[in-house]
Lab assay of single mutants.
Amino acid sequence: ELREAFAKVDTDGNGYISFNELNDLFKAACLPLPGYRVREITENLMATGDLDQDGRISFDEFIKIFHGLKSTDVAKTFRKAINK
């Protein structure tokens, strides 16, 4: 299930999730959020999830993000976006 969610976000299939891919995910989900809020959520996920600070999120980092977000608003938003 997590591998499928990761693949859905990794639209270019390079094995990593970029800032733009995350941002595009939230935009495509048509969530009722202003653009600046989408950017804040994306920046927050990148800042906390990109553990090796290479500017992208690997599958291992994605798993840690996903499990670390349990019930936060960001987690709910992220799950809604993935499930669209």
Score class of each variant (00 low, 15 high):
Glu40Leu: 03
Ser18Phe: 06
Ser71Ala: 13
Lys76Arg: 12
Arg79Asp: 15
His67Pro: 05
Asn23Gly: 14
Lys70Arg: 10
Asp50Trp: 05
Leu33Tyr: 13
Ser18Lys: 14
Phe62Trp: 06
Asp60Ala: 08
Asn83Ile: 07
Gly68Ile: 11
Asp52Ala: 15
Glu4Val: 02
Gly55Leu: 03
Arg39Tyr: 04
Ile65Glu: 03
Thr72Ala: 12
Leu2Ser: 02
Asn44Phe: 06
Tyr16Glu: 03
Asn20Pro: 05
Glu43Val: 02
Cys30Gly: 15
Arg39Gln: 10
Asp50Gln: 13
Ile57Thr: 00
Phe62Ser: 02
Phe26Glu: 00
Ile65Trp: 03
Glu21Gly: 03
Asp60Lys: 11
His67Cys: 07
Met46Ala: 13
Asp73Trp: 06
Asp12Ile: 03
Ser18Tyr: 04
Phe62Leu: 06
Asn83Arg: 11
Ala5Met: 14
Arg37Gln: 15
Leu2Gly: 01
Glu40Thr: 04
Lys8Arg: 06
Lys27Leu: 05
Gly49Ser: 08
Thr48Asn: 13
Phe59Asp: 01
Asp12Asn: 09
Ile17Leu: 02
Cys30His: 14
Glu61His: 10
Glu43Cys: 03
Gly49Ala: 08
Arg79Ile: 08
Thr72Asn: 08
Tyr36Leu: 10
Ser18Val: 02
Phe66Val: 14
Gln53Thr: 11
Val38Met: 10
Lys27Tyr: 03
Tyr36Phe: 09
Glu43Asn: 14
Glu21Lys: 12
Ala47Trp: 04
Lys80His: 11
Arg3Val: 09
Gly68Trp: 08
Ser58Leu: 01
Lys80Met: 07
Pro34Trp: 03
Met46Arg: 14
Leu25Tyr: 04
Gln53Ala: 11
Met46Leu: 11
Ala75Val: 10
Leu31Arg: 05
Ile17Cys: 03
Pro34Ile: 01
Arg3Glu: 09
Lys70Gly: 08
Val74Ser: 13
Ile17Gly: 00
Lys64Asp: 04
Ala28Pro: 01
Ile57Glu: 00
Ser58Arg: 04
Gly35Asn: 13
Ala75Gly: 14
Asn44Ile: 07
Phe78Lys: 15
Leu22Glu: 00
Tyr16Trp: 09
Lys27Phe: 03
Leu33Asn: 11
Asp24His: 07
Glu61Ala: 10
Asp10Cys: 02
Ser71Val: 08
Glu43Ile: 04
Gly35Asp: 14
Asn83Gln: 10
Leu22Ile: 07
Gly13Met: 04
Asp12Arg: 05
Phe19Cys: 12
Asn20Cys: 07
Ser58Asn: 09
Asn20Lys: 11
Gln53Met: 10
Phe78Ala: 15
Glu40Met: 04
Lys76Asp: 12
Pro32Tyr: 06
